[in-house]
Structures are given as C-alpha cells and as structure tokens.
C-alpha cells in the first residue's frame, strides 16, 4: 500500500465495510486490560475456523477458503494483529457461533452439514450487520464481522484466491488504461 492506495482505502471505508481494512489502518492500541479468556488456538480451533471460512467462501469451480488455509491465517492474524479486547471477542465468538448452531440444530458446527452451516451463518451475518449498523463508534466489532473480514482478506490474498479465483500478474510489464471487459472476466487480485 502506498499513499494513493491508502487514500482509496480511506475513501472506501467511509463508504462501508471493507475486507481487512481494520488490519491496515485502525492502529489500535495494545490493550492494557488483562483478560482471562483463552487466547490461544488449538488445532481443533483451526479446523473449526477452516469450516467457517469455507462456508463463507466455498469451493466452486475454484477451491474455497479451507483449501487456501484461511483457518490458520485467521489464527495468525488474531494472535499477532488483534488487541486483547478483539482477541477476546473473537474467541468468545467462536463459542457463541457454536452455541447458536447447537440451539438451532442440536449439533455442533462441525457436525452439521454444509447447507445447515450456510443457513446458520447467513443468520449470524444478518445479526452482525444489524449490530454493526447500530453500534456506537467505540463499541467493539461483531465477532462474525471479524471472521468474515479475515476470511475475505485471507482468501483473496492467498495463492489459490489470487491466482485461481482472481487474476494475478506478478509482472504486468505494461499498462493499458482502457481495455474491454466482459461479464465473467475475473478481477485483478492486486
């Protein structure tokens, strides 16, 4: 990102939600508050996050978020980039999401099938949007907003996401400002 990209990001943030913007510009302070919530991830957690991510970005004609390793990516980002408060919300969110699944289907998230997962996350996504639209500025973000942002960022910047779902050209070699585009052509990854 450079000054121009930063400008574009700010502009977009003002326009709404942007995948990963939080990671680039928030500049959140390292939290002073100590929390007792577990803030480490187990292998099981990673597998669980993989399934959440894969429900958000499933395999279609191109591999989905799980194949792109988004579960592990989320753990790295939450561990390294989130402040303690956000870490706590994320970890609690993992539990809340699973509880919501149990309540709705009587089974844990890992046990329900993809269509049930999609139904559940669609509901939670709606809840997250309502929460985000009404929350005060200094209130924390919804846990599912975090998961979704990290999934989109992690997937579309992964090798699979960038080169298969999107188009990636490491060295374009030239610039053309105006070329024809037809519906269905993939967007540039960067």
């Amino acid at each position: 990102m450079n000054r121009r990209d930063a400008l574009s990001r700010v502009a977009l943030i003002l326009g709404g939600t942007v995948a990963g913007a939080h990671v680039f510009l928030e500049g959140c302070q390292p939290g002073d508050k100590k929390t007792s919530a577990a803030t480490t991830f187990t292998e099981k957690d990673t597998a669980y996050l993989d399934e959440i991510a894969d429900t958000i970005i499933p395999t279609t004609d191109t591999p989905g978020a799980k194949a792109a390793g988004v579960g592990a990516f989320m753990t790295v980002m939450v561990n390294d980039c989130y402040d303690e408060n956000d870490q706590k919300i994320f970890h609690e969110g993992m539990k809340l999401l699973n509880d919501a699944g149990k309540k709705k289907f009587g089974k844990s998230f890992m046990e329900i099938d993809p269509s049930a997962r999609k139904e559940l996350l669609t509901e939670i996504d709606k809840e997250a949007k309502e929460y985000m639209a009404n929350k005060k500025q200094d209130e924390p973000r919804h846990y599912f907003r975090m998961m979704k942002e990290l999934t989109l960022l992690g997937y579309f910047t992964s090798e699979i996401g960038a080169t298969q779902a999107l188009r990636y050209m490491a060295v374009p070699g030239k610039y053309e400002g105006c070329i024809p585009y037809k519906k269905g052509d993939r967007a540039w990854a960067t």
Binding site: I56, T60, F156, D185
Partner: peptide, 25 residues
C-alpha cells in the same frame, strides 16, 4: 479505478453468491 474484492459488500451474505460477486470487478 474499479473496486476489487476488498469493496463494501453490505448487500451480500455468504457463500457462492458472495464468492462469485467478489471474483469480478
């Protein structure tokens, strides 16, 4: 320029539709 995957996507939920939309500019 045209927006990429990191655009505002309030109207979209999750799954296939989201993925397909974000793979296009």
């Amino acid at each position: 320029s045209r927006e990429g995957y990191n655009r505002s996507q309030e109207e979209l939920a999750i799954g296939l539709e989201l993925k397909e939309m974000l793979t296009e500019p």
